[in-house]
Simulated scan of single mutants.
Amino acid sequence: MHPLLSAEQAVLGAVLLDPDQLSHLGWLAPDHFYRPVHQALFGALRKLHGDGHPALSADGPLPLSWVIDAVDEARLHVRGLTSVYAHTLIQACPRIEHAPVYGRMVLEGAIHRTIAQHAIGLHQAARADAVQGEVERVLRRADVLTGVLTDLARRWGTDPRPVAPTGAPTAAWAVPPTVQTDQVAEDERFLLAVLTEQPRAMDEVAAWLRPGDFADPAHGRLYRCLSALHHRGEPIDRITLLWEAQRRGLLSDGTLSGEQLAAVCDGMVPGSADWFGHRVMRHSLTRTAAASARAVRALAEDEVLVPGRLINHALHALDPLAEVRTRWAIANGSPTRKPRTSAPSAGGPPPARVQAARARSTPLAAASPPAPTGPIPAPAAARPPARGHH
């Protein structure tokens, strides 16, 4: 049996045996469970607990009505749940007092699963926008994914900040790049031709267009040559561009041939550099979004990564998209988005983060913990670990 399934059964069995365990699982939600039947049952247990079920105030052994009513409530939302399975869950719980640890395992699985699902959504949006020549859908999905990562970080009790993965990339990262279409290559050639024919047009795109925005590496290196001539204030034409390309080794390493360079320079294309530049930039944004989505999904599918590292590595994988997005906003005259900040507040970490961290690390030993440095809410009155049912 998969450890995640065992953890889901164990945390439900613990709550069925001792409803007071729900007071230690306030950070766990029904949708964190993988199986729909487990989602429905945990939601029912929370509802009965919140409504003040009579079994909670009963003296002596826990009444069997707690289990029966929980199963009946869950049946309203899912099929196939029986009282027999509820008792199977009870038997699957080794130690009732370990419920917060079992809940943490469930939350870990939910974090990996949720990040992978939103990464897939971002990748699908990038592919759709690339076909339709738009970016609105992919920008919305990127905002959603960033918000999900921030929310999951707070639930887990960690500080959301981009952290680069250490060590060599895994095989899951070795994903082939997006196939370059004829339209993308044509837009790039047309832009280079306009910039060569109209040197002043470099002023229109130099502030936001970068060599890495070109899908064809040869076109990107050729644009770098144009940018260098423009930066030095030197004249730009087919001869100076050929000379700069030779100085940078584009002819000697086989990146370009003289004939290919001449074909770009001699292509008389009527049009605006700003217009072609925007098209190249749109392709770059959707292409970068797809690459970031693949990287985030590869991270989420790595079961070795603990949630804190997974979230921070995923935020780092989105940084290239944020950089391209900032330049896209500049190209369109829009205000740039504020960068993510992770500086702690003057009053310390948020209470929700503290609560999540404490819930994940509640000591199980009987030894007294060290003296706290700040006020800690008084724990709820503990019910005997095993009350049983009658």
Rank of each mutant, 00 (worst) to 15 (best):
A128M: 11
L28S: 01
A314N: 03
R238N: 06
L152N: 04
G374W: 13
C265I: 07
Q9R: 15
T170N: 06
V15N: 02
L285N: 01
A153M: 09
L48V: 03
K338N: 07
L241H: 05
I96A: 10
T114M: 11
R140H: 07
L41F: 12
H389D: 02
K47A: 14
T326E: 08
H123A: 12
S227V: 08
A171S: 12
Y223T: 01
A126V: 07
A378E: 07
M268Y: 11
R340V: 14
R340K: 08
A331D: 02
R221L: 05
P169R: 15
M105P: 00
R140W: 12
V163N: 04
I376D: 02
H87Y: 15
S368N: 03
A380I: 05
L192N: 04
T341K: 11
S65K: 05
R325K: 08
A346E: 14
V280G: 01
W27P: 00
E301H: 10
P235I: 04
R327T: 04
A300N: 06
D302W: 13
V194R: 01
V71Y: 03
A329L: 10
V135D: 02
S284E: 03
S6R: 15
P370A: 11
H283I: 04
S361W: 15
M202L: 15
G60C: 06
W275L: 15
R282I: 09
P270V: 12
T114K: 13
S368C: 07
Q246Y: 06
W328T: 02
D159V: 12
P177M: 06
A171H: 13
S23L: 12
I120H: 13
F276Y: 15
H118I: 01
W208K: 01
A126K: 04
L222Q: 03
L89W: 12
V264E: 04
H98Q: 10
P372V: 06
V135W: 12
A300Y: 14
A289V: 07
P385G: 01
G133P: 00
G254T: 09
P339L: 15
V67L: 13
P162S: 10
P379K: 07
L41P: 00
A382V: 09
I236A: 12
R337E: 14
P344Q: 07
T178D: 00
T158E: 05
L4M: 10
T288C: 08
T170M: 09
D203I: 00
R325I: 09
E97N: 09
I115A: 09
R247S: 04
L191R: 06
C265F: 13
T82R: 08
M202A: 05
M105I: 05
G388I: 08
S65P: 00
L152R: 14
A142H: 08
L25C: 04
R113N: 10
D18W: 09
D69A: 05
W156S: 00
A371L: 13
L305F: 13
R200W: 13
V296I: 11
P369I: 06
A171R: 13
R35F: 11
E204K: 02
R337Q: 14
A298C: 07
A99N: 04
D274G: 08
H389M: 01
A290I: 09
V78H: 11
L64K: 02
V106H: 13
R154M: 13
G80Q: 09
